[in-house]
Design a protein around this nucleic acid. Structure first.
Length: 573
DNA sequence: GCCGTTTTCGGCCCGACTGTTTTCAGTCG
């Protein structure tokens, strides 16, 4: 069994124990053991004594060993004998946890979704202690809605919704400031719902206004401090709004950003200081609550440098922040964008318009990289048109003293591994990107042959969107990532983190691997319009999630450094 | 079940909200 499977089984054990009504701390111990395993960077095969990991003791170490060796565990087997496995899926239902599921099983012999539905329809549930008529109705409704929407929605979809919500919140007078929180602020690839923290003196009124401003189909929760609504959209997305008084804004934002596991790490740390941390501030016995005006201050209070939201996953970020997190990339480190298209191929704006928009963003340089001839659907450039475009790039470049437009191309790697232009053409360009746009269904061997041929070409400086995935739509072509990273390092070819919200390719996990191997990264937007340039921020956020340092990113170079880098030609990193 | 620079026993992260209750358990994040 691999690590992920083992962690899943530990969670299963915890859930069984919860349904059985076991000691909550024992249940938490199994979950913690799973988290400890996840945090450990090693693969399970590389760990010889699991009980040496903090959070894993003798008992859970034995379970892990059994699972790893035999794929089974006596603990799990015993629980399975006792408790029907169909009960496990019931936790997906909002409002049902282990204890209530246990009651339903014991009192009504509910064993799965179907029998729960029957019990609700037969009005048997309402008679149970702790349950009532309303609960029964809600359960039935939720069961019917189940499977109508995926559990997790991809970030491109949720970003779009968030932007609409933000423009509504911006117009609202009673809101002083607000921020994304939760998974979106941490830039997770997919998420269950959206979270916002709002500063207001008048939560009651603000909540009313939000309901008016947004297409709300249902208010599913409302109190003094928070409100949960379901949006009238195809996936019935749920949005949490948390209201904060001015002084508690930062601690509330921190709390609501999570992750839950990160918050637990911080509470432990506070406890070590003899303090208590919550969304309202930091508190010591007999002392007034301490609040903060920035997250830097909040982390500083515990002797940590600010931990960016993107890495607050409850792994080892607090340990790392004790010695500082210097060098993690920030949006302001980006000096240029190396991947964009114009009307010469499938872009929406002229070369000059794109250059001006890049310059207006404060970049020192950008690189024009239209498509190559084989990509007919995108009006790829013939050799003649590519050479003509060089003149246009020179003309536009001459317009600015404080901005450089480099010439380039996004060249297709053809199915047989050959490249779309000859070296004679490529050597006339400043920056050559290679990428795969068709024949995705080839075998890994064939795909890798294509990528290898591109890496080994002396003019190809970057592999764009290395896996070809589209979030929530397609998984891309079959890449052997370890091999690609090795090739990139060997040949001095950079790998892209394509910032387009639909791609985010490489992913944070993969880009992290590339950095660890010593491969250079470029964070590009692949813009086909001015609007798309804004996705640089989500690209950088993804990089932060992958712990990428600015020094390893090509487009953090100054224009002088980048020019020198280009002139020096390819050499191994 | 796990853990210990006071501890091998007795703790274990914090608060909002809901629906059930007459003061709180369960769930959620």
């Amino acid at each position: 069994m691999n690590k992920k499977q083992i962690i899943d089984q530990l969670d299963r054990i915890a859930l069984y124990l919860e349904i059985r009504g076991d000691n909550p701390f024992k249940i938490a111990a199994y979950r913690r053991a799973g988290q400890a395993l996840e945090t450990d960077q090693r693969s399970v095969a590389g760990i010889d004594d699991f009980s040496k990991i903090k959070g894993i003791g003798r008992a859970t170490a034995d379970v892990i060993k059994d699972l790893m060796m035999t794929g089974e565990s006596s603990v799990l087997r015993e629980l399975q004998k006792e408790i029907p496995s169909g009960l496990l899926e019931l936790v997906k239902i909002q409002g049902l946890g282990g204890k209530k599921i246990g009651k339903l099983y014991q009192a009504l012999n509910v064993t799965d979704l179907a029998s729960l539905r029957e019990a609700c329809e037969g009005e048997q549930v309402r008679g149970l202690p702790g349950f009532g008529e309303k609960t029964e109705e809600k359960l039935l409704e939720t069961i019917k809605k189940l499977n109508q929407r995926p559990e997790q929605l991809p970030i491109p979809y949720m970003l779009g919704l968030a932007e609409k919500i933000e423009s509504a919140l911006q117009s609202e007078q009673t809101i002083k400031r607000f921020s994304r929180a939760g998974s979106l602020r941490r830039a997770k690839e997919s998420m269950k719902d959206l979270d916002f923290v709002i500063e207001t003196d008048d939560p009651e009124n603000t909540a009313d206004r939000i309901i008016e401003l947004l297409p709300v189909s249902e208010v599913t929760g409302r109190g003094d401090a928070k409100m949960t609504v379901v949006l009238d959209d195809p996936y019935h997305v749920s949005v949490d709004f948390r209201f904060a008084a001015p002084e508690a804004y930062v601690t509330t934002l921190h709390h609501f950003t999570g992750s839950k596991e990160h918050n637990i790490l911080l509470r432990h740390l506070a406890k070590e200081h003899g303090e208590k941390i919550s969304e309202y501030g930091v508190e010591a016995e007999n002392k007034p609550v301490r609040t903060f005006s920035t997250e830097e201050e909040l982390y500083g209070h515990f002797g940590l440098s600010k931990i960016p939201p993107e890495v607050r996953e409850g792994t080892d970020e607090v340990e790392k922040a004790k010695s500082g997190l210097l060098g993690l990339i920030r949006l302001s480190d980006i000096k240029g964008d190396l991947h964009m298209h114009s009307t010469w191929s499938d872009g929406s704006y002229t070369v000059q318009e794109m250059a001006e928009a890049m310059r207006a963003r404060g970049y020192a340089y950008a690189c024009l990289t239209d498509h190559s001839k084989s990509l007919r659907v995108a009006s790829g450039l013939s050799e003649e048109r590519l050479l003509m475009q060089l003149k246009e790039v020179a003309r536009v470049n001459a317009l600015y003293e404080d901005f450089t437009l480099f010439s380039g191309v996004e060249m297709d790697i053809l199915p047989d591994g050959s490249l779309d232009y000859s070296d004679d053409i490529l050597k006339k360009l400043d920056f050559v990107i290679a990428s795969i746009h068709f024949s995705f269904s080839q075998s890994t061997d064939q795909i890798m042959k294509r990528l290898e041929s591109a890496c080994r070409n002396p003019y190809v400086r970057l592999i764009a969107h290395p896996t070809g995935r589209l979030l929530g739509k397609r998984s891309g072509y079959p890449v052997n990532l370890d091999r690609l990273i090795q090739l990139a390092k060997e040949t001095g070819t950079a790998l892209e983190l394509n910032s387009n919200r639909n791609r985010l390719d490489l992913s944070s996990e993969r880009v992290r691997k590339a950095q660890e191997a010593g491969v250079r990264i470029a964070i590009d937007t692949d813009s086909h319009s001015k609007k798309m340039m804004e996705d640089m921020s989500i690209g950088v956020q993804t990089a932060v999630r992958g712990w990428i340092r600015a020094e390893n990113v090509l487009n953090t170079m100054t224009v002088e450094q980048f020019t020198t880098f280009l002139r020096a030609g390819k050499k191994p990193f």
